[in-house]
Computed example of a mutant assay.
Amino acid sequence: MKEMWDHWDNETKQLVYCNYGDLPYLLNAKLDKHLFRAIAQFWNPAHSCFTFGKVDLVPTVEEYTTLLRCPKIQVDKAYSRAASVPTLLKKLMNITGMSEQWITTRIQQKGDSKCVPWKSLRDLVLVHPDVKKRVDVFALGIYELVVFPKALGHIDEAAFDLFDRLSKGVTPIPAILAETFRSLNACRRTGEGRFIGCAQLLLAWFHIHF
């Protein structure tokens, strides 16, 4: 994805910034695994915060909103799964602009959820004639592979649902924070495990305070 981004012209990049804020900077954020493991040791599951000596710190909605800086986000419209949502097929058609047949052949079942291989969508980013759709699919890839890295190499149904709601101006920040806290709790409870929140954002937040 970083290679794709580096080859885009300024006009396309500005379209990403306009619609999705500073999301692309996550591609260049260096992930210091040793620092991240050290930080995770200070997570206090009982109080859902980091405890450094006598100081308690926790990422806030306001801080994460500033870090992502998305002009189209409406901070008072938090994401929550709607009671009635379009089918995965419809959501994919809206996001990609591709035909029902194209999408149907690429939907896979992984565990208890449906997903689409990132390779299929990556190829779409490279060849889609509509620049706006190209940008949308690219941003979707960042949300799944960097912000919510749950299904490695695949975009799962939950990511499509969240991304579909972004077009309505909802803020994804509470969902990002909730997944971060949940994953930190899970890692601390087991003593190990794969963190499936956005490690890049968490480290960016940490550097601001230290």
Rank of each mutant, 00 (worst) to 15 (best):
T105Y: 09
L88C: 07
R69T: 08
T105Q: 15
G53D: 10
K168E: 10
A151Y: 06
C198P: 06
L140K: 03
E63P: 08
R122D: 14
I73K: 04
V58M: 04
C187R: 08
R165C: 07
S99N: 03
L152V: 13
Q109S: 14
K13A: 02
V58Q: 09
K168A: 09
Q14F: 02
A82T: 05
P24F: 00
A83E: 14
D32S: 15
F160K: 01
L15V: 06
N185A: 03
L184F: 09
R69E: 13
R81I: 11
E3T: 13
P45C: 05
K72W: 02
A40E: 11
E100G: 05
L92T: 05
H154C: 05
A151F: 03
R189Y: 09
T180D: 09
A204D: 09
S167T: 04
M98Y: 06
G53C: 05
V127R: 12
E11V: 14
I95S: 00
K54D: 12
W5G: 04
L89C: 07
Y64K: 03
Q14M: 09
A82E: 13
T190G: 06
T87V: 10
F206L: 12
F50N: 04
T180C: 13
Y64W: 15
D156I: 03
L27E: 06
F210G: 13
D123Y: 11
Q109D: 10
D76E: 14
I142L: 01
K132D: 13
K30L: 12
P172D: 01
D161M: 09
R81E: 15
G97C: 00
V85E: 15
T12L: 09
Q14K: 11
T105R: 15
Q74T: 07
L203W: 01
N10L: 10
